[in-house]
Design a binder for these strands. Structure first.
Lengths: 215, 215
DNA sequence: GCACTTCTGCACTCACCAGTGCATAATGAC
DNA sequence: GTCATTATGCACTGGTGAGTGCAGAAGTGC
């Protein structure tokens, strides 16, 4: 919202808007690749095709640039989550729905880009605790809550037995992608779409065995 | 093994052995607290109560010091895992065993020290991929394999139905501590023994509902 | 076209830190 | 006690990177 309006707001000099975008894009790539400390403002400026001075004119310091980059990445991810998870209401059998959603969920999260973002924020949790916490609340935590709501539909229709919807949503999420995500954090090259999908399906089945009503 | 013998080997000058231990201890603390790049050899030397020159005499470079520190931490964790998980054979009812082990497992992993180690290795996975991979194989991976073996006992006794013991072990582990561990990586202050234990028990129950034979 | 703002390039300061060299002191082996 | 090895202190080099200053070029709004 705030981010989107910035690039359309007529009060903002288009040169500024353009520079901001170029810098934020390049900086995100660079921070994801090198981490905060190993990243250099000079390199970011070169990759953005912009003078180093422009970076400092627009963002003040390396710290503030990082905050801006992460703030934007968090907002983007949050929007994606809302668009994705809030989408359809369930008209289909639980099993189909759960299995399909499991694969989609794993495919959305166990991705080089998302894993790199998680790694970066985890790595900088000491230096920027507020950024790590905010990301956690607004992205993975929001996903869990959305999943919980989605599961509630099936609880109301009598397909699932959910004593604690939030706990169930966590169980779903970590059954489906916990192992793959954990592994990917240590070794990004471990990401394998086929294995990830298979694990997601296996996790979904375990979830259904545990939470299907009348088990 | 190699590490233990180094401090007892009579061929090693006791001054060297002593300095090595002091430096490795201080360096582990320092790296866990600051990360690799923000850590300084000067500070480590001071904390170890040793001259900077001694650090370089014994370890050659900051990189090699880091490798030594992590190698030792990995070995320590690995020994702990072997001692812990391989311990008792099961003579007790599945439910009791699974629940108790779940709590113990969560308590052992979701700990400031362990979480900090994971964060450090995840953060440096780009710079030292081999260290992150080795840790993952020798610690969490080894735990999963040990859990799988342990579960097999109950499969043989007919208490659990395990089509894939390794997958089941992963499901167990991430059901029990996935959420707490993930949260702790982003926010170390989120660690709460009471909540962790409760979540571990809830996860264990889900596991049992899904994997109990004849469900 | 004019007035204003932003961007650029480049040289510069300042601080920090990895790693070294060396002379001296301390310590272990016998 | 003697000799060899190791530890210490300290000054030093070299490199790197954050952040600044400024004068001129270029783009923007009207």
């Amino acid at each position: 919202m705030t981010a989107a309006s910035a690039s359309t707001d007529p009060r903002v000099d288009p040169r500024v808007a353009r520079s901001r975008e170029l810098i934020l894009d390049a900086a995100l790539d660079h921070f994801l690749k090198h981490g905060f400390l190993a990243a250099t403002v000079d390199a970011i400026a070169v990759e953005a095709g912009v003078a180093k001075r422009t970076v400092y004119n627009l963002f003040g310091s390396k710290d503030d640039l990082f905050r801006a980059v992460i703030g934007r990445a968090t907002a983007t991810a949050e929007n994606f989550v809302e668009a994705q998870v809030g989408a359809d209401t369930n008209l289909r059998p639980v099993d189909d729905e759960i299995r399909e959603f499991a694969v989609a969920h794993a495919a959305a999260v166990v991705t080089p880009r998302v894993v790199a973002t998680r790694r970066l924020l985890i790595a900088e949790a000491h230096r920027f605790p507020e950024l790590a916490t905010e990301y956690f609340e607004r992205v993975p935590r929001a996903v869990i809550e959305a999943v919980a709501e989605r599961l509630q539909h099936y609880a109301r229709s009598g397909d699932l037995a959910l004593p604690d919807a939030l706990a169930a949503a966590e169980h779903f999420a970590y059954l489906v992608l916990g192992a793959a995500l954990d592994h990917a954090l240590f070794d990004p090259t471990s990401i394998d779409a086929r294995a990830r999908d298979a694990a997601a399906l296996a996790g979904a089945d375990v979830f259904l065995r545990a939470y299907r009503a009348g088990g």
